[in-house]
Structures are given as structure tokens and as C-alpha cells.
């Protein structure tokens, strides 16, 4: 048994809020994410292009990096047994260098499917200055108890 602790399903309640994560965004934050996601488009590394061609005020965080921030935010809380099943999101306002972004989230639903897999549905957001920049709905599987492990589910036993 791993010494790494993971949250179990019974420890979570509908309506529960996650502790917010605050992160100051820099140009490095944006460019690191773009390179890691193999996104070579200039609006994620070239400020002149972003301003003059995209009409934005600076380079901005791309979609896969946004997804990675949400994933990290939730698994920081669940621990490594928390397994992402589904993610839907809407980027409304770009996140720029100089912004201080806040990730927040809330458990909206708990459920157990017909295979016994325990699910939590979350509403998540990235906000800057109190305004929501990105909305996200995500579904994670959690262990039913300390001996359970969602990563051991395959084929018909994994229905995200």
C-alpha cells in the first residue's frame, strides 16, 4: 500500500468547496505550457503577434494548459487515485501575463455507477480580479475505500 494519501468517496460531500489556488501568471507560465503542449502558434509566445494579429493585450494561456491547471487543481485535493473521466470547458476571457489567477471549485454531485465506480462532478473556474475567465465541468472517479483504486478499472468497468 502506497504511503501517498488519496481522498476517498465518503470524505466528500455535495456542495463542498475546494480550497482556492492562487497563481501569478508570467510570460514564462504561458510559454512553458505552450511548449509542453506542442502548441507552436505565435499568440502563445510572440507578444507582437498577439497584439497586432489577434487583437489581445498580450500572449495568453492556451487550451491544453488551461486543462492541465484544472487537472492539477483537482488532483492536488484528491491525491493520485483521483482519476479524470471527463472535462468540458469554455474559455471566455484569455489569461495574460501579469494576471493573478484564482482556481476555484465545488462538488455538485456524487454518484455510483452500475459497475460500482464512485464519481464526483465538479464545477470549476479560473478567475482574474473576481471575473470568471474559464468555466469547467469535470468528472473524477474516487476510491470507494482505502483499498479501492479507480486506475484498476478498464474496459466495461470504466464508464466516464
Amino acid at each position: 500500500m502506497s504511503a501517498v494519501r488519496s481522498l476517498i468517496f465518503a470524505e466528500v460531500e455535495e456542495g463542498q468547496a475546494l480550497s482556492p489556488l492562487v497563481h501569478p501568471v508570467t510570460a514564462t507560465t504561458v510559454v512553458l505550457g505552450a511548449i509542453a503542449s506542442r502548441d507552436w502558434r505565435p499568440m502563445h509566445h510572440d507578444k507582437d503577434f498577439a497584439i497586432n494579429r489577434n487583437g489581445t493585450k498580450d500572449i495568453f494561456i492556451n487550451t491544453p494548459t488551461n486543462a492541465a491547471w484544472f487537472q492539477r487543481f483537482v488532483t492536488d485535493w484528491t491525491g493520485p487515485k483521483g482519476r479524470l473521466g471527463k472535462m468540458k470547458f469554455k474559455m471566455k476571457i484569455p489569461v495574460f501575463p501579469g494576471d493573478t489567477m484564482t482556481l476555484s471549485g465545488r462538488v455538485v454531485r456524487k454518484s455510483v455507477d452500475d459497475t460500482g465506480c464512485c464519481w464526483i462532478d465538479l464545477d470549476l473556474a479560473v478567475s482574474v480580479g473576481g471575473k470568471v475567465n474559464t468555466e469547467c465541468q469535470a468528472r473524477f472517479a474516487l476510491p470507494a475505500d482505502a483499498g479501492d483504486n479507480p486506475w484498476e478499472r478498464h474496459g466495461d468497468r470504466w464508464k466516464p
Binding site: V4, R38, A68, Q71, R72, P80
Partner: peptide, 28 residues
Amino acid sequence: GYVYSMCAAVQDGNPLYWDPAVARELTG
């Protein structure tokens, strides 16, 4: 390499990606 870069970009310390022993135990 790309996994480490993305985890570094978002400061994701999940041991599944950084610790091969945890990965072996939990995800094979």
C-alpha cells in the same frame, strides 16, 4: 519529457507522474 514539461508549467506535483514507484503501484 513532455509530461515533465507540462507538470512544471502548471506546478503539478502528482507523484503518478514524478515517482515511478507510485506509478507502478497505482497504474501499473
